[in-house]
Design a binder for these strands. Structure first.
Lengths: 206, 206
DNA sequence: TAGATTGTTAATCGATTAACAATC
DNA sequence: TAGATTGTTAATCGATTAACAATC
């Protein structure tokens, strides 16, 4: 669609969260260095990221909080809302369903799936659970574009393959497994084991 | 301690996982391009990462799986085991306690904490829960070096400050908040909301 | 105006990639 | 030996940083 870098997309998502806080604080203007301090980015990165989405500030007042938030939303959000499916209704899957329940109106987990049919036919935080055999049908019926994988590592690649065959092009993977996907499928890796090991390493290394 | 890059540390953790799988498959030797394919890294990255930890292969048989696994473990793991504390015994916190239970003997979540005292005095998957008021005491008593934050975003910075004051230098943050820390504290960010937004963006952008 | 901030260009830095010699 | 792989060095690439002009 365009060539905005992956890092910029991630930071824009962070900036939007900060701006929501600033809006509730009735702050109308904000400077790049303020956003930098709150987000961990540098002021130059912040300004470059805003330039990337075509939003300009003024040298007198910095950036208009409300307009900037709308500009980021217009860039990050799809024109109409996007639907998400979660596969693997274990502890972690249920925690994620709870976490995202009603959090973002444009991005909704509309269905959860599990290989174990006894976990289906439940409703968790307003999200209906289906047996995995219904996956492809529901992805098409509910126009699902994004998948979240919270199954054990041994099943992750198989679930991933099913998602890709169903047409999903964006995947968030919590499973401890490296997924093999076609180049047009984007995988976000949230590997808790790797992160914990890194934190432990740097806890004594630094 | 040394200047090995953060990316290399993360990849080494992945490689180790792959090697465990190879060992259970009774594979004794492995080439860099095999590890590359399984891990998503390039063969050159794999070789450079192994050079960084001082392990050499042979041009005839590649790398010895067992020795390589031991070499990575010797590099990533602390001489003695490291203890971890988790703060925030909600759905996500409990899922993480379950996930890490007995998974890695050198890195154990030995205590969980929650601001709500009624959540304390329980034992979840062998991990005892304490009220948050006991945090600093238990960190010192149990020699805890790493912290996991699974509280709501509004409380994350306060929890982080308490961890830093208690001497923790490695933090894994699941909360939707950017933490301000001194430069000698390493924070691993696992931001589910940001990752989901990125996946959704690239699901339509690519 | 003076001073701070934004937008733009050039320089820097780090990691990746490519090229090639050494090895089995 | 021939061929594939490892280890080493140089080139490339992308993002960050620094420098500076433009703006309010």
């Amino acid at each position: 669609m365009n060539n905005t870098s992956e890092k910029t997309i991630g930071r824009l998502s962070l900036y939007r969260r900060l701006l929501q806080q600033l809006q509730t604080d009735d702050k109308t203007n904000v400077f790049s260095h303020e956003i930098a301090r709150l987000s961990g980015a540098t002021a130059a990165q912040v300004r470059r990221d805003f330039m990337a989405i075509g939003y300009s500030g003024s040298s007198a007042h910095g950036y208009d909080v409300k307009q900037l938030a709308e500009s980021i939303a217009g860039f990050l959000d799809a024109p109409k809302s996007q639907n998400v499916a979660l596969v693997g209704v274990g502890h972690l899957g249920q925690a994620i369903l709870t976490y995202f329940s009603g959090r973002r109106p444009k991005l909704t987990i509309v269905a959860a799936f599990d290989a174990n049919p006894t976990k289906a036919e439940r409703i968790i935080n307003g999200c209906r659970c289906y047996p995995m055999t219904d996956f492809t049908t529901e992805v098409h019926n509910q126009n699902i574009e994004v998948g979240i994988i919270t199954v054990p590592g041994s099943e992750a690649q198989s679930v991933c393959d099913t998602m890709v065959r169903a047409g999903i092009r964006g995947i968030v993977n919590f499973a401890p497994a490296t997924l093999q996907t076609p180049p047009d499928v984007h995988v976000e890796v949230l590997d808790m084991a790797v992160s914990l090991e890194k934190a432990a390493y740097f806890a004594r290394a630094e």
